[in-house]
C-alpha cells in the first residue's frame, strides 16, 4: 500500500510537470524551430520570445492592466470582508445564516450568467474599459471568498480574547486593529492570496468588460493568437510570465496555506 501510493504520487508529479516543462521549452525556442520538429531538449535555446514581450507595449501594457485590476480587487475585497467576517464570527444577528448563504451562492455562480448585465451596467455608468470595472466585477466572487476564509480564521481565535480586551477597557476599533488583526495575520495573507489568484486567473469577465484601453494580459494572449497566426514561442513565453506572480504570492503565504485548506474554505 505504502509503495503503491508512492508510485502513484511520483506518477502524478510527472503528469503535473510534463506539460509545464513543455511550455518552458516552447518559450525558449523560436517559431521556425517549433514548427520544424519535436525537440525534447531545446537544441538552440533563445530568449528572443521574452525580449519580444518586454519590448512590445501591447504585451507589457497588458501585464500592467492585469496587475492594476487584480490589486484593486484584492484591496476592495479584503477591506470590505474584514468587518463582515468579524460580524459573522462574533455575533448572531437577524438573517445572518441567510446572508452567509447568499454570499456563498455568488462564489458559486457562473460568470457567464452575469456577462450580459455587467456589460450593460458598466457601459451605463461609464466604467466600461477601465480596470475598476473588472475589479468590481471580480468582487462578485472574491468578496464572498474573502468573507468565507476570514470568518474561518477568526472563528479559530477564542472569543475570550475579545472579552479580555473589553474588560481592559479597549474600544472595539482599537481592539480590532491593534490586537485582533495581528492575531489573524496568516488568515489575511491567505485571503489576499486567494483574491489575488481568482482575479488573476479569470478571463471571461475581464475580456467582456475591457476594450482596447484596459486590455489585460490574458486577453492579449487570446487575441494575438487569432490575429497574426500562431506565434507559439511568444505565446508560451507569455504563459510562463503569467505564472510568475502566482508563484511569488504563494511563496509569502506558504506556511499558512495548509491551514487555509484545513478550514476547507476556498
Amino acid at each position: 500500500m505504502r509503495r503503491a501510493s508512492n508510485w502513484l504520487l511520483w506518477g502524478y508529479c510527472v503528469y503535473l510537470v510534463l506539460p509545464l516543462y513543455w511550455l518552458v521549452t516552447m518559450a525558449l525556442r523560436n517559431n521556425q524551430d517549433i514548427v520544424a520538429g519535436l525537440e525534447v531538449i531545446p537544441a538552440n535555446p533563445t530568449l528572443a520570445n521574452f525580449a519580444e514581450i518586454f519590448g512590445n507595449p501591447v504585451w507589457y501594457q497588458g501585464f500592467a492592466n492585469s496587475l492594476s485590476y487584480v490589486v484593486l480587487n484584492t484591496l476592495i475585497s479584503v477591506l470590505v470582508a474584514l468587518p463582515a467576517a468579524y460580524a459573522f464570527s462574533r455575533y448572531r444577528f437577524m438573517g445572518d445564516r441567510h446572508l452567509f448563504f447568499w454570499l456563498l451562492t455568488n462564489r458559486m455562480a457562473p460568470p457567464a450568467v452575469f456577462l450580459l448585465p455587467f456589460f450593460q451596467l458598466y457601459s451605463a455608468i461609464g466604467l466600461f474599459d477601465t480596470p475598476l470595472a473588472v475589479a468590481l466585477a471580480h468582487c462578485l466572487f472574491t468578496v464572498p471568498l474573502a468573507v468565507w476564509i476570514l470568518e474561518g480564521f477568526m472563528s479559530a481565535v477564542p472569543r475570550s480574547l475579545d472579552e479580555m480586551a473589553r474588560l481592559d477597557g479597549h474600544r472595539l476599533g482599537y481592539f480590532f486593529l491593534r490586537i485582533f488583526l495581528p492575531t489573524i495575520r496568516g488568515g489575511v495573507g491567505v485571503a489576499v492570496f486567494f483574491c489575488f489568484m481568482f482575479s488573476w486567473v479569470e478571463l471571461l469577465l475581464a475580456r467582456t468588460l475591457t476594450g482596447s484601453e484596459a486590455k489585460p494580459i490574458v486577453v492579449v494572449m487570446t487575441r494575438t493568437v487569432s490575429a497574426s497566426g500562431m506565434d507559439w514561442g511568444v505565446l508560451a513565453a507569455a504563459g510562463v510570465l503569467t505564472i510568475v506572480p502566482g508563484v511569488a504570492v504563494v511563496w509569502f503565504v506558504r506556511r499558512h496555506l495548509v491551514k487555509g485548506f484545513a478550514l476547507g474554505r476556498v
Partner: peptide, 24 residues
C-alpha cells in the same frame, strides 16, 4: 463565551452587502 446576539452587527456586513448587491 457564546456568540453575542445583536443586530448592530449589520453595520459590519453592510459594506459587503452593498458591494455584492451592486454586482449581483
Amino acid at each position: 463565551p457564546e456568540r453575542r446576539s445583536t443586530n448592530l452587527a449589520w453595520f459590519g456586513v453592510l459594506p459587503v452587502v452593498l458591494v455584492v448587491a451592486f454586482s449581483a
